[in-house]
Design a binder for these strands. Structure first.
Length: 897
RNA sequence: GCCGAUGUGGUGAAAUGGUAAACACAGCAGACUUAAAAUCUGCUGGGGCGAAAGCUCCUUGCCGGUUCGAGUCCGGCCAUCGGCACCA
């Protein structure tokens, strides 16, 4: 009594069959340099997906969007004679896995394995042409051995005067002390305040904290000082900005990175402190006369600095606060410390602060200005202290208004003549002017434009030794340790209060096999529970922190190049071939021509496709590691990813972001079950431009399914028993001119569109071709096979299936082997030439008539035809023809008035 | 507030400065069928005139500009989405 309706074509039978056939034949294995079957004469193409985090929810329809796009390109490049590296793997360490494991009482290794298994199965059901021999998993000891190894390279390096990473052995050779060296390592220990998340029981990187809450879970985050491992990414800030320029990335993403790094030019200025009213600073006693260093992007406004503000946590506060103000200051500091970052930003509108009782001397005019503390000044940026110029800074303005501090105008929109003696006008301006202009009330700067005033004052400060030109970055060093179980242990031991690397021979350093891996609820990491493991020797103990999830994803693309190498994180030859593209083992002349294209570019992954959510985090961290490896000579290119494309988010059918709570989540498995993998692949590519945000439409899937059914019926029809048999219309004849024209247009357009990632228009062209085949009484086999080749990167299963069916009767048109291994067809320009074309006639730009003319009709002939057209004559009427524009093969525009 | 992206039919969208709306979805009508599904064929931006074939005007967020010709290029607005945000 099953009411199951008949499938339009038996995708449920042949899709798994072809997946099995590809797998059994290892059809998409990519040989490496050195392998017997490696063909170094081919150019390389490295097409990379952002590897997924294998969550318990399984694949989301967003995953196949990017994965299908790269699969189409990979298959196309493969058919076009490239060695294609198209791998897949798992970013499997991390907080969510551990949270899930804790919740369900299972070991994260067990849940991770199961999730990976599930993801792999789901991806295989979509028919992606991955080389599964290169699969990587960041939690695999054979993988994280090298993550730990790279950490040791960071630990063992410093940045030299030229800004390049170099081994610390160079510093040892110069006789630097252990402490001096430790202070310069790229991986170093710091006591700085960090983002502690009590709920997750770990500290987080700045990048993982969003609006004062953890990115994972959304729990409150507070700042507290803790001993942590940091990576010195700030030493690479300038290069991370500069080297974006050579990359083929969306402008928006490059900007996001630039903004995140946040370079600003300005000056550092030193202000002397006077302890209290009447007390003069003791010039020869620095301890008695501390100085406050501030960073400012507007040194030209120095004459307008009427007070100073320190961050509440600033260490100098203790030294300068007066007896009288001490208790108020302490109260304020305690209040600020209790505030989470969230509260601090939420309350941003209302300024708060307290006077320290101390004064500083403004070095340009020797004026005594009060020193305050306020939480609008952040310890983490600049020097943690500012000179406040309320007339020209919105925040200072608000603060000054609230606490009734003096406001002095020092910049005016237009130059203003000063009275002789440059008397200072202390009339406060009516509003805050934070723009550039001309200096006023500023002694020797008066009349100068802002830019010039900056130069003048900076030179003056440098001359007096109280300031200097400075470049400041928003980017902070990368907080690299986590108090969690499910991550890479640090290959570090502690002895006598000092850290040191364990020998490389001891890698991989496996985490202890803990039964209880829950956070301790204190900053003490869970690894502390494994007493035996912790004890390294009689006197040394292991580092208890683990690495953050980002570690494994910083270099996975390199591991893909040589995933099974047990000697090295990536083989020298493999890295050079896949990242630079130098063909190995070619005769000199031949290799030179092959090299032209790849070496014009800085190199790296040829195409990297993934979501915008990694625009700053992953992409910045990976670039940083890559540059360190480049400086140390381990990789050949300064940048890892040459071309980056962001796929757009797929929204639910209701136009909202897909989420369980909205109930609008589409499960790819259900789509595959009902319509097949090819339909899903085709639909996701047909939805619209890859980079665009677009809503899901089940009807749209049905449309693609119908298209594939039409393709199927070009070759197959049902007999009286209801079985699929080959259509009699399929015949070994040559295509007529009309069909042949569409066919060659399709080859051309689809090839071009794939290169441009315009998959939606490629698919519509194939629909046009399919209609042409349908309307033709006979289906010429040769033309049909050519079409299958064009279709195969998009819908590989049905293409292979029809190809095999065609072979059963027309073996001469479908030689043995996979369609996936066939050569991409070449288009014949002569087939596309028409005998006649339609030209349109316009009068004053408006379409009035059209005519069919021979394709080689001359300008004069077309013009004559246009002027003879009754419609044209009607609209020209009594007007005078001023001009006639003729575009041969296109149009005639008669201009008349 | 700052930065970025996007605005085209009922919907997803397409258009090297040259016929706006290809290709699909949805809708309507017809063929096939006892019927339904599936399939196939046709119509489908808006207004006006016409019985109809057809004719005609308008239309790519808004306002201007360049051009023989603008969805496309330039200038100025508006709206939506995304990111950043006390960064001195």
């Amino acid at each position: 009594m099953s009411n199951e309706r008949r499938k339009q074509f038996p995708f449920d039978e042949f899709e798994p069959r072809w997946q099995a056939a590809w797998e059994q034949a290892n059809a998409f294995r990519t040989p490496n340099p050195g392998d017997a079957d490696f063909d170094g004469s081919k150019p390389k193409f490295f097409v990379l997906d952002m590897f997924p985090y294998p969550s318990g929810n399984g694949l989301h329809v967003g995953h196949p969007e990017g994965y299908t796009a790269t699969d189409i390109i990979g298959r196309f490049k493969r058919m076009s004679g490239f060695n294609v590296l198209h791998p897949m793997g798992w970013d499997a360490f991390g907080l969510p896995a551990e949270q899930y494991a804790i919740k369900t009482g299972q070991h994260p290794r067990a849940t991770t394995e199961r999730n990976v298994e599930n993801f792999r199965g789901q991806l295989k059901r979509l028919g992606f042409a991955y080389d599964w021999d290169r699969e990587v998993n960041t939690t695999d000891p054979d993988y994280f051995k090298w993550t730990q190894w790279i950490f040791l390279k960071l630990y063992g390096s410093y940045v030299n005067d030229e800004g390049k990473a170099r081994p610390v052995s160079e510093l040892e050779a110069k006789g630097l002390s252990r402490e001096e060296i430790d202070a310069r390592r790229l991986a170093y220990v710091s006591e700085a305040p960090v983002n502690w998340c009590p709920e997750l029981g770990t500290v987080l990187a700045n990048e993982e904290v969003v609006d004062g809450k953890s990115d994972v879970g959304g729990f409150p985050v507070e700042r507290r000082p803790m001993r942590q491992w940091m990576l010195r990414i700030t030493s690479f800030a300038q290069r991370l900005i500069d080297e974006l320029d050579g990359l083929d990335w969306p402008e928006g993403i490059r900007l996001l990175q630039r903004n995140w790094i946040g370079r600003s030019e300005g000056a550092e200025v030193k202000f002397k402190v006077v302890q209290a009213a009447g007390l003069q600073p003791k010039a020869d006693n620095p301890a008695g006369c501390p100085a406050i260093h501030v960073f400012t992007t507007r040194p030209d406004t120095l004459f307008g600095a009427t007070y100073m503000v320190l961050a509440p946590e600033h260490p100098l506060v203790d030294q300068i606060v007066t007896e009288e103000q001490l208790s108020d200051v302490e109260t304020y500091r305690a209040k600020t410390a209790r505030k989470s970052d969230l509260e601090r930003t939420e309350l941003a509108k209302e300024k708060s602060g307290i006077f320290t009782g101390a004064y500083a001397i403004n070095p340009v005019n020797e004026e005594r200005i009060p020193i305050w503390i306020a939480d609008y000044v952040l310890l983490g940026y600049g020097t943690g202290a500012i000179m406040a110029v309320p007339a020209h800074d919105e925040r200072d303005w608000e603060f000054a208004k609230k606490f009734d501090l003096p406001i002095r105008e020092v910049v005016a929109a237009a130059p203003r003549l000063q009275g002789e003696g440059s008397a200072v006008c202390d009339m406060p301006p009516l509003e805050c002017l934070s723009l550039e202009g001309f200096a006023v009330n500023s002694s020797f700067l008066n009349g100068l434009a802002t830019l010039e005033a900056k130069h003048r004052i900076t030179a003056w400060l440098e001359e007096k030794g109280i300031g200097k030109k400075t470049i400041n970055f928003k980017l902070r060093d990368w907080l690299f340790s986590r108090q969690r179980y499910w991550g890479e242990p640090f290959p570090i031991v502690w002895e006598g209060g000092h850290h040191r690397a364990i020998p490389e021979s001891e890698l991989p350093l496996q985490p202890p096999d803990l039964v209880d891996f829950k956070p301790t609820g204190t900053p003490e990491p869970p690894l502390s529970k494994a007493a035996d493991w912790v004890k390294y020797s009689a006197t040394a103990t292991r580092e208890l922190n683990t690495m953050p999830q980002w570690a494994g994803s910083c270099w996975y693309y390199l591991r893909y190049c040589d995933a099974r190498n047990s000697e090295r994180f990536v083989g020298v030859e493999a890295e050079r071939y896949w990242m630079v593209g130098q063909p190995a083992g070619l005769p000199e002349s031949e290799s030179a021509t092959q090299r032209v294209t790849p070496l014009l570019k800085p190199g790296g992954v040829d195409l990297y496709v993934g979501g915008t959510e990694h625009a700053v985090l992953h992409l910045l961290y990976a670039r940083f590691w890559h540059k360190v490896l480049f400086d140390l000579g381990y990789v050949s290119t300064p940048e890892p990813f040459q071309r980056l494309v962001n796929q757009g988010l797929i929204l639910g059918e209701d136009g909202q972001k897909m989420s369980k709570s909205r109930g609008n989540v589409v499960n790819p498995d259900d789509v595959v079950e009902e319509y097949g993998a090819d339909s899903l692949r085709l639909y996701e590519m047909f939805m619209g431009p890859l980079e665009q945000v677009k809503p899901w439409s089940t009807n749209g899937v049905v449309g693609q399914h119908r298209f594939l059914a039409r393709v199927w019926r070009l070759v197959m029809e049902t007999n009286q028993e209801g079985e699929w048999v080959m259509s009699a219309a399929l015949q070994d004849v040559t295509a007529d001119k009309k069909l042949n024209k569409v066919l060659h247009e399709t080859i051309k357009k689809c090839g071009g569109d794939i290169e441009k990632l315009c998959f939606n228009t490629a698919i519509s062209q194939m629909m046009v071709l399919t209609t042409a085949f349908t309307q033709s009484d006979v289906r010429p086999v040769g033309a049909l096979v050519t079409f299958l080749k064009v279709l195969s990167p998009f819908a590989p299963h049905i293409a292979e299936e029809i190809y095999a069916i065609v072979r059963s009767q027309f073996p001469q048109h479908a030689p043995a082997g996979f369609l996936a291994d066939c050569e991409w067809p070449k288009f014949d320009p002569s087939a596309m030439i028409e005998d006649e074309v339609e030209v349109v006639f316009q009068v004053n730009g408006k379409l009035r008539d059209r005519a069919t003319v021979p394709v080689n009709a001359s300008k004069e002939e077309i013009e004559k035809l246009a002027l003879a057209s009754p419609k044209v004559r009607e609209f020209v009427g009594a007007l005078t023809v001023r001009k006639i524009v003729v575009v041969p093969g296109k149009l005639v525009n008669v201009v008349a008035n």
